[in-house]
Structure formats: structure tokens, C-alpha cells
């Protein structure tokens, strides 16, 4: 829908890493019994993947599902597919105690790209990047706001924050990626 715009309109900055607002993404909060057969089926249908293990994210093409807490998943689909996905999840989980909520418009998504992408986030998040496993989603804070990120490519992180603080988060990323401020200059 052309009326829908992301918080920052896809702004990007090139420092020692490239930081960019990634645009709208379909996101759906799913709460329920993560071990139930219905949940497995619902997730498989929505994303084509299994229910992720604790702190893991399962990615399949433009769809993904992340473990958020022991009773919560975040299903990610293309923005335009969110409403259908919500309906499908609702249907698949009917009869189970669950909650499905479209949060596509409540989030802002960012990518941090480059060989030193991790160094941008190391300035903002109290996270030990050396122990961050492949396929791990880490919920933490970026400076003063809540954030979650995962390694979405060989030299890329995807970071999600609340939409209202998108400008703040982009400010953090821009300042932290400025050239000359590499933490471990070659």
C-alpha cells in the first residue's frame, strides 16, 4: 500500500559501516505454547521453518521467525503479506490459548553492513559479540532503548527497535559508524 511509510523513509549513512533503515517489514507477535503441534504447524505454514529454539532465529528467504521469550515468537514476512499471515496464524492456532498481534507498524528495522559492522553495535549494546552464535537473536538495549538484532549476513546485522524511537536509533548508528571511530583499526 503506497500510503504506508516507514518511520525514516529508508534513510542511510555511509561511515566505516553502512547503516540504513530497511523499510517496512511484516512482523507478527505470536504468543502461545511453543511446543504444541498446532504452533509448529502454524509457524511452518507462515514461514516455512521450524519453531526456533530459545534465542534462535530461523530464516527462510524473505520470511523468518525469532524466539522472543519462552512463550513468544516474532514472525517476519513481507509487509504486504502481514495481514494474510495474521489470519492464517489465527486460524491455525484456533482452539489453543494464544495471542497473535500484527506489530508490523510498531517497529523500525535497520541494517548495519560492512566488515566492521559489529563494532558499531559494540558501542551501543552490552553484548559479548565474540560469543554471539550464528543464528542467534539478541534482545538487549541500544544505548537507552530496547532493541533486538541478529547476524543477517556475512557482514550484516539487522536491528529492530520500536518505531517511535527510529530517529534516535538512526542517530546512534550514524554517530557510532563515523569513519575514524573504528574500535579496532587495522
Amino acid at each position: 500500500m503506497s500510503k504506508a511509510v516507514s518511520a525514516l523513509g529508508g534513510v542511510s549513512h555511509q561511515g566505516f559501516a553502512e547503516v540504513a533503515e530497511a523499510g517496512l517489514r511484516g512482523m507478527i507477535t505470536v504468543r502461545g505454547d511453543l511446543s504444541s503441534a498446532a504452533m509448529k504447524k502454524a509457524v511452518k505454514a507462515a514461514t516455512g521453518t521450524a519453531v526456533p529454539a530459545p534465542r534462535r532465529i530461523e530464516i527462510a528467504g524473505d520470511r523468518a521467525v525469532a524466539w522472543m521469550s519462552p512463550d513468544e515468537l516474532l514472525v517476519m514476512v513481507p509487509y504486504a503479506a502481514a495481514q494474510d499471515a495474521v489470519a492464517a496464524l489465527e486460524k491455525a492456532l484456533a482452539g489453543e490459548h494464544h495471542l497473535v498481534a500484527d506489530v508490523s507498524d510498531a517497529r523500525a528495522v535497520f541494517t548495519v553492513r560492512g566488515a566492521k559492522a559489529a563494532e558499531v553495535l559494540m558501542k551501543l549494546c552490552p553484548v559479548d559479540f565474540a560469543t554471539l552464535a550464528e543464528g542467534e537473536i539478541r534482545r538487549t538495549r541500544a544505548a537507552q532503548v530496547a532493541a533486538a538484532f541478529w547476524k543477517s549476513g556475512a557482514e550484516e546485522f539487522t536491528l529492530v527497535s520500536f518505531r517511535s524511537v527510529a530517529g534516535y536509533v538512526m542517530g546512534l548508528l550514524e554517530v557510532s559508524s563515523r569513519k575514524g571511530s573504528e574500535l579496532f583499526p587495522a
Binding site: A7, K123, L124, A143, Q144, V165, Y168, G171, S176
Partner: peptide, 15 residues
């Protein structure tokens, strides 16, 4: 640290 000027603290904006 980085907390000064525009990013001294988070500013929440409505759409």
C-alpha cells in the same frame, strides 16, 4: 559518551 545533542536521550515521535 554518545549521549549529547539530538541523541542525548531518546525522543519518541508519533507517525
Amino acid at each position: 559518551g554518545e549521549a549529547r545533542g539530538e541523541i542525548f536521550q531518546p525522543l519518541r515521535r508519533t507517525p
